[in-house]
Amino acid sequence: MNVNANANFAQDNPMSQFLRMERMPHIWCPGCGIGTVVTAFAEAVKKSGLDLDKIAIVSGIGCTGRTAGYVKLDSFHSTHGRAIPLATGLKLANPEMKVVVFSGDGDLTSIGGNHFIHAARRNMDITVVCVNNFTYGMTGGQMTPTTPHTANASTTPYGNYEYPFSLPFLADACGATYIARWTSLHARQISGSIKEALNHKGFSFVEVIAPCTTLYQRRNRLGDGLDALEYYQNDAEIAHGLDTRQVDIDYQGKIKVGKFVEKQKPTYLDNVNQHYAQVIGDEYELYGKTTPEKEAEAKAKAESAAKGAV
């Protein structure tokens, strides 16, 4: 491929508005499910009609954690497990933004588990997309909190003897107000759910079961990416509204997918403002303006006053 062809590729690619093409190629392996989810995310953003300038994306560390680096939005590649608190800071400092966390199962629910729990509890108005491939891919296939019982990982070479998290159940128990799960086979549905999640007010959580071909698949002799998709094809069962207590995943067992939870509840910031307005009254001032913005406002005010005087 010559240089010009490369340039054309960057220009012509339908994702070029959405990705930092100068950072391609990405690091993900052939058959990996993350790219599918990123594409579905792009599709969801496009369909949602949201202004790309008003969406920020935050990732932690790991394979999925690289997403923030490739997406052409205000994007933050934070430390391991800390995407949610960083996103919380962004959202609270600038409430007009849509803030999306895009990370993996290990990052979000092991080292970052506490933040996940508390963001859901607060009904923080952010969207969390978790690509759950049951393993730490970047560091070589170790066990994560979602690795199914008996599955083989590099740190459970004789099979996993721990109980895994069922993430929709965890999110539900903690207070998340939108919860959906798909597999990377369900590209259209993922996109639909992410779109709904983006438009949802409150803590929205979309889990996508995806294959790690290089490590999880291979280590467990489950074949390649195609075999994974075949498994999803055969064993994923759409069950919208299913009680989240019934969605856990056994090793190579049935995968319940669909939209499990969608409910309305005041968000963290709604509560802050409603509560203060109630107890403090008219004197309460909503926060969130920077000095240039305040100056611009004061200037506009003065100008309109001057006009009024004329």
Binding site: D74, S78, R82, P85, N94
Partner: peptide, 18 residues
């Protein structure tokens, strides 16, 4: 926040939030 790790990380978000 839920702990000090979250606190200081939220500051990074807060600062880039303006």
């Amino acid at each position: 926040m839920e702990d000090e790790i979250a606190s200081v990380t939220a500051l990074i978000g807060g600062a880039w939030g303006g």
